[in-house]
């Protein structure tokens, strides 16, 4: 699991690649917390490199969403691979998160 954080004037993008499982979920949570320290109230998680996510990983997504809601910010998730999209659909997460097909459309807040 690897994360790359890039900040622009209006939003922050966290690109996550690899597997988020029970072990790497802790790491993922830690790197995402760093992104919360900045002032941007718009966050994009780019999942184009995400290969696998376990329930521990989904939990971190929920925490991000709750934190963003608490600071009245917005969270966009983009570029889910089909197997990840299926997990989001089955778990009903597709109805909770704002999902976008690509990064470009996700940047429009």
């Amino acid at each position: 699991m690897e994360t790359t954080i890039s900040k622009s004037a209006n939003y922050t993008v966290i690109a996550v690649a690899g597997r988020i499982d029970t072990v790497t979920a802790v790491e993922f949570e830690r790197s995402v917390s760093q992104a919360f320290e900045d002032e941007n109230n718009a966050l994009i998680i780019d999942c184009s490199g995400l290969e696998y996510i376990s329930s521990s990983g989904l939990r971190v997504f929920l925490m991000i969403q709750k934190k963003m809601m608490a600071k009245k910010g917005q969270l966009h998730i983009c570029s889910l691979r089909p197997n990840i999209k299926e997990i989001f659909d089955i778990s009903g997460f597709s109805g909770i998160f704002k999902l976008f097909g690509d990064l470009d459309s996700a940047t429009k807040f």
Partner: peptide, 27 residues
């Protein structure tokens, strides 16, 4: 938010119980 269960019927047919699109409990 659970994976859809299967129904095993006769004549080697199976089907999934359609998901309702509802999400997980507890959040």
């Amino acid at each position: 938010g659970h994976n859809p269960p299967y129904i095993l019927r006769q004549n080697e047919t199976i089907e999934t119980i359609p998901s309702t699109g509802d999400t997980i409990l507890g959040v």
